[in-house]
C-alpha cells in the first residue's frame, strides 16, 4: 500500500498588534484560507484542493499555524495564502498576513524546523532586551522548560510570551 502523501505548510500570522493574536482559532483560519482559495482559484480550484485541507496546529501566543493539504495540490493553496488580508472573528476583523516559513512532508520535520526557527528568533531578540535582568529572566524561563523531556512545544510558547 502506498500511503496518501500530504504537505504541511508552516505559516506565521503577522499582525500589527500582537495582542490580537489571542483571538485566533482553528475555524477562523480555515475560513479565511477557504475564502481566499475561492477568490483566487474559483470553484474548480476550491473543489480540487479542499479534500484533506485542515488546520493541524495553532499557537495563539506565537501566531504559528500548521496547515495540512494534499501533496498534489499544495501549490494551489499556497498561492492563495498571500491574498488573505484579515481574519474575521465575531464581526470584528483583524488585519493580518500569512508568511509561509516552511513546507514539510511530515509534521515531525515541521516541528524540528519550528524549534530551530524559534531558537533563531530568540537569538535575534535577546540583544534588544533593555536590561541584564530581563535577559537573565528570559534565559531562566527557557531553561526551566527544556528540563522536562518532550518539552519542545512548551519552550516555543515561552519565547512568544517573553517577546
Amino acid at each position: 500500500m502506498v500511503r496518501l502523501k500530504s504537505r504541511y505548510l508552516l505559516c506565521e500570522v503577522c499582525v500589527s498588534d500582537r495582542s490580537h493574536l489571542l483571538l485566533l482559532d482553528d475555524g477562523t483560519v480555515q475560513n479565511a484560507a477557504k475564502h481566499a482559495l475561492i477568490q483566487a482559484h474559483g470553484d474548480y480550484g476550491f473543489a480540487h484542493s479542499i479534500f484533506g485541507f485542515s488546520v493541524k496546529y495553532l499557537n495563539a501566543h506565537t501566531g504559528i499555524v500548521l496547515l495540512r493539504c494534499r501533496k498534489s495540490h499544495y501549490r494551489l493553496i499556497w498561492s492563495a495564502l498571500p491574498f488573505i488580508t484579515g481574519l474575521k472573528k465575531r464581526g470584528q476583523k483583524v488585519p493580518c498576513f500569512f508568511n509561509c516559513l516552511h513546507v514539510g512532508g511530515t509534521i515531525r520535520t515541521c516541528q524540528k524546523f519550528l524549534v530551530r526557527y524559534n531558537t533563531q528568533q530568540l537569538h535575534r531578540m535577546l540583544p534588544l532586551c533593555h536590561s541584564e535582568e530581563e535577559r537573565s529572566a528570559i534565559r531562566k524561563s527557557v531553561l526551566s522548560c527544556t528540563v522536562q523531556k518532550d518539552a519542545d512545544a512548551d519552550s516555543e510558547e515561552d519565547i512568544g510570551e517573553e517577546d
Binding site: S16, W78, L81, F97, N99, C100
Partner: peptide, 17 residues
C-alpha cells in the same frame, strides 16, 4: 502599509498565478 508585504517564498510561489 506593513501589512501589504508578503514573504519572499510566498511571492515566488505566487509566480505560479
Amino acid at each position: 502599509h506593513p501589512l501589504e508585504m508578503r514573504g519572499p517564498y510566498d511571492i515566488s510561489n505566487l509566480g505560479l498565478l
